[in-house]
Design a protein around this nucleic acid. Structure first.
Length: 429
RNA sequence: GGAGCGGUGGCAGAGUCUGGUCGAUUGCACCGGUCUUGAAAACCGGAGGCCCGCAAGGGCCCGGGGGUUCGAAUCCCUCCCGCUCCGCCA
């Protein structure tokens, strides 16, 4: 959420920023008008309340001192003012609610150094690591859905039988590899990040705090009976757990990580790049996350990126780093680097991590502050996947497929797989 | 799921029956000072959050929302959360 004060102090700046996303900036004019209306109503209400407070005190004094006539007169006077106050209050509340409704749907202002452009085509490739097109042989040009079926480690049919398409079921070494990947990611970051295992069903307010509601309601699974939402990422509970808190500045940056399942309806993406594990409704992920001061945020952002890259490097997967164009940024983010691994079988770059600096956008929604020398200020929040399983799994089996059809397990991962070094064909079932 | 009790400032804990002088007593923690070679102790002082405003100042906040009243931490309704006991259960 944007700071409503900026609507009156730097409306132009906000408009320029939103325009870079390719968004209609007239909402800002609407918001500014409602803000103006709200402040007028509040001022009027406060003035009336001030008078009522004085009168009420006098009523009490008058009755106590036995001056019944004065007491009754002032009481009636106060009552009249009370009716006006009620009306002003109603206006203030109505305008306040409307302003919040508008603000909750306005995305964050992109950082100045976020690349220009409004589509994914405009994203800038910052660097490509470990990629050499010529290095791949025919045996690596097999898509993971075929490899998975062949080796009996991915059972999409049965996953669909259970829950529908987009709900993969893994078996045997394939299932173990998912756990191994998460364990690896957690272990690699445990030196600096506190591990959290949050709930994965959360309240509406929690989803609002990160920006996933109200605007993207269609993207989330909702449990109606209990009015709870399945989290699309651990970023949601990690942000929400600090809601309404004032953090100790000395404790910042606070680095957290969390393993969690993630649920996404992918409503807007039906039929697009959905084969195999390319786009699924449920998957496991290890998220790395930080609360920090605005001054620390740049460094922390770089740190999260380096951490996420580190896991891919450890697994020996070629990847590239994208600096997202202003228009391709998620709503909450002001600057995002995407990590994409190369999947030779599918011959695609797969997004496996989005490392986002959200500024105070989420902090304001969740009301997470820290103490400063002269008061409080909103923290900055940053998040990114340390490792998202299904796409990394896909890239792994494609990259490490050997001429005989088996899949070699990278050295870094083997210890987490009971020493398994190669996944061969399954025993007959 | 049933019954009972409770939610007050960073924490603990009064105040609620008997509405006004209660944004709120007290203790701990915290910050500054005195004393001390230094520290502790003791003593003195300071200190909640939010909104509007250049400021002066005003308004709001005792879990959330609504109501009664001239006036609500205090009375009423409702929702949420916590604890205890019972039931059920991985």
């Amino acid at each position: 959420m944007l700071d409503p004060r900026r609507l009156r102090t730097e409306l132009d700046v906000l408009k320029k920023g939103l325009a870079r996303r390719g968004v209609d900036t007239s909402v800002l004019d609407r918001a500014a008008a409602v803000d103006e209306r709200q402040r007028h109503a509040v001022a009027k209400r406060d003035e009336l309340r001030s008078q009522i407070n004085v009168l009420s005190k006098e009523v009490g004094e008058a009755f106590r001192s036995g001056d019944k006539a004065t007491g009754e007169r002032k009481r009636d006077e106060s009552k009249t003012l009370g009716e006006q106050e009620k009306q002003a209050e109603a206006e203030a509340k109505e305008a306040g609610d409307e302003l919040r409704e508008i603000l909750l749907r306005i995305p964050n202002i992109p950082a100045d150094d976020a690349p220009e452009g409004i589509t994914a085509e405009d994203n800038v490739v910052v660097r490509t690591v470990g990629f050499d097109e010529r290095r791949y042989d025919a045996h690596q040009r097999v898509p993971h859905w075929d490899i998975g079926a062949e080796l009996g480690i991915l059972d999409l049919e049965r996953g669909a039988k259970l829950s529908g398409s987009g709900f993969p079921m893994f078996r045997g070494a394939g299932a173990a590899m998912l756990r191994a990947l998460c364990q690896l990611a957690l272990d690699r970051n445990a030196d600096a990040f506190e591990e959290i295992r949050p709930p994965t069903l959360v309240r509406t307010e929690t989803m609002v705090s990160t920006g996933h509601l109200p605007k993207f309601e269609i993207e989330a699974y909702h449990v109606e009976r209990d009015d709870l939402w399945s989290i699309p990422t651990a970023e949601v509970p990690l942000t929400g757990q600090a809601r309404d808190e004032i953090l100790d500045a000395d404790a910042l940056p606070i680095r957290l990580m969390a393993y969690s399942p993630c649920f996404r309806r992918e409503a807007g993406a039906a039929g697009r790049d959905t084969r195999g594990l390319l786009r699924v409704h449920e998957f496991d992920k290890v998220e790395i996350y930080a609360f920090c001061t605005p001054e620390q945020a740049g460094d922390v952002h770089a740190e999260l990126l380096a951490r996420a890259e580190g896991s891919l490097q450890a697994l020996g997967l070629p990847y590239r780093v994208l600096d997202l164009a202003a228009g391709d940024l998620g709503d909450a983010s002001r600057r995002t680097f995407d990590l994409e691994v190369y999947a030779p079988g599918a011959d695609m770059w797969l997004e496996v991590s989005s490392i986002s600096w959200c500024g105070d956008y989420q902090a304001r929604r969740a009301n997470v502050r820290y103490r400063t020398a002269d008061g409080t200020a909103m923290v900055h929040t940053l998040n990114g996947s340390a490792l998202a399983t299904p796409r990394v799994w896909a890239a792994l089996v494609e990259t490490y497929r050997q001429p005989d059809g088996s899949v070699r397990i990278p050295d870094a991962l083997a210890p987490y797989m009971r020493g398994v070094e190669v996944i061969g064909p399954p025993p007959p079932r």
